[in-house]
Structures are given as C-alpha cells and as structure tokens.
C-alpha cells in the first residue's frame, strides 16, 4: 500500500535563507499527523511542496504513489489552504456544488456542508459571511471530494468551539476508515488532542517526529521562575523533576516535569528563594530550547 504522503530530503531555499532543510516525512494511510511549529517554522512551505504548489529546491514529494499535482487532478486530496480566496458573488451551496462536480466521487453537498457546520448559511452569498463562516466554507470545499488524504493548513483559525469540534469529529471519522489527515498548527493542544503523530518543525528542520507523548516529554511540562542570591546550575539541575536550567543574573528558570516536587525541594534547599512563579511551557520557548536557538 502506497504511503499517503511521502517527502524525501525536501529542501527549499530562497537565496541565502533556507525555508526547509532536508525534510523527510512518511505518512502512512489511516494516520492523523500534526505538523507542529512556531510561526515561520516552514509548515506552510512544507505543505505547499507536498501538494506540488511550490517546487522544492531539492528532494521529492509523492501523494499515494503519484506526483502531487497528478494526485490533486485525480481528486485524491482535499486541501484547506491558509490564504485561499473564495468567490464573493455566489452562494455557499453553489460554490460547494460546483466544486463537487470537479471530483469523480464527491460526497453529497449537504453532507459536506453539515460536516463543516456550514449548512446554517448555505443559501447566503459568500461576500456576506464572517471570517469564521468563510473558514467553514473552506472546510466544506476540502471535504467535498471525499478525498483519501486531507491536508489542512491551520484549519481552526477563526473557528469557534462548535466549528472546531465538528472539524475534528469529521477528521476522526475519516481516519477511522483508513483515510489520512495531515494538518499544520501552532497549537500544542490541538496536536495533543487530535494527532496520532506529531512532526515538530523548527527553522525548516524536523526536530522531533513521533507519537504525541514523546513530543510532550520534549516540550511539555512547566517552568518555575525564581530569584536566588546564588544560583548554582548544578544544584538546581539536581532538584526533582527538573529537566533543564537557565540562569540569567540572579533569576533562574527551571523547566520541570513535576512543578510541585520541584517547588517543595526548591524552598527546602534555598532559604532565599523568592519571587517564585510557575508558568506553562509556551511552545515558542520550548522550540527555542529544542532547537538550541536563542
């Protein structure tokens, strides 16, 4: 069985800057894969190359064993792009119906509209829709061909809770039938909740690839910020739960798997520990630590 998506040693350079650097990615059928990374990590570039919209500087891409453009023409892929436009002067159902006609075996228009929660405004002109409603139309357009591979770039941007829930429910139902979904996001929780596998991208490189738990070990946990008179990295590092220590002047930042245990030990060890606060790891700073950048 061909892989749903296969990227081999894909690089993309714009002059001196490297947007993607030797990325390998193999998505087996039936998987839900999150491409996770901060803004500018190369997620959209990666998806554009995977879809044949952008030529790679080197490397190859294939979808279900076909060159990407051929797979698109065959209707094997449903895509939601970040900045795609819609026709303003037609109704939602008219646009979705016209798009359905381009595929060999589309799903019924009503079903796509319902799955995207766009059925409530199907008879409205697209020019009159709000940003969130337009995103639902894009989702309906991605689903309408009943594709074997879904590629979604930041699909939940502008969606409310109901819209998100509906989208992920549909994605799950599809992957349950052996279809594949690849989505890009910069929300860790989204990857956590809905992906079987996470590909962590930073500065154009895959810095981690594996099940969600493995990634969470790398970037999850929380941070303890503390001010100390004499912060000794070695001692701090030995506190329970601590994975990583950063000292800046009199302030230390401890990355920990178990903030309760770390705090107890911190107060017991350092009588002068003050200005203590804990914070969840934000993804951006986690990436910085993972990629060893500044």
């Amino acid at each position: 069985m061909a892989n749903a998506l296969e990227l081999t040693a894909v690089s993309k350079r714009y002059g001196q800057t490297s947007a993607l650097d030797g990325v390998d990615l193999t998505a087996e059928q039936g998987q839900t894969i999150a491409v996770l990374g901060p803004n500018g990590a190369g997620k959209s570039t990666l998806l554009s190359i995977a879809l044949g919209l952008l030529p790679p500087t080197s490397g190859t891409a294939a979808i279900l064993g076909h060159p990407p453009v051929e797979a698109l023409r065959k209707g094997l892929v449903g895509v939601l792009l970040q900045e795609s436009g819609l026709l303003e002067d037609v109704r939602v159902d008219e646009l979705v119906t016209a798009t359905a006609g381009m595929y060999q075996k589309p799903m019924p228009v009503e079903r796509a509209l319902r799955a995207a929660r766009a059925d409530g405004f199907a008879a409205q002109r697209i020019g009159k829709l709000s940003g969130g409603q337009r995103q639902r139309v894009r989702i309906a357009l991605a689903l309408i061909g009943d594709p074997r591979l879904l590629v979604l770039d930041e699909p939940t941007v502008g969606l409310d809770v109901d819209g998100r829930r509906a989208l992920w429910q549909e994605v799950r139902a599809r992957t349950g039938e052996g279809r594949t979904a690849v989505f890009a996001t910069h929300y860790l929780t989204e990857a956590d909740d809905y992906a079987d596998r996470v590909i962590l991208l930073a500065k154009g490189k895959v810095v981690a690839d594996g099940p969600v738990e493995k990634i969470k070990e790398l970037v999850g946990g929380s941070e303890v910020h503390v001010t100390l008179d004499a912060a000794e990295v070695g001692v701090l590092q030995a506190l329970p739960g601590v994975r990583q220590v950063r000292v800046e002047g009199g302030a230390a930042v401890l990355r920990t798997n178990d903030s309760d245990a770390t705090l107890r030990a911190l107060f017991a060890t350092f009588a002068d520990a003050r200005d203590v606060r804990t914070a969840g790891t934000d993804l951006e700073s986690a990436f910085v630590s993972l990629t060893g950048g500044n």
Partner: peptide, 16 residues
C-alpha cells in the same frame, strides 16, 4: 480572482 487568492484555491482541486 487571482489577487483574491481564488486561483490558489482552484489549484488544489481537480480542475486544471
């Protein structure tokens, strides 16, 4: 349609 990104959307459909 080009400047509004509609052709980008069409590029990911089977329509050549």
């Amino acid at each position: 349609e080009r400047s509004k990104g509609w052709l980008r959307q069409l590029a990911v459909t089977p329509l050549p």
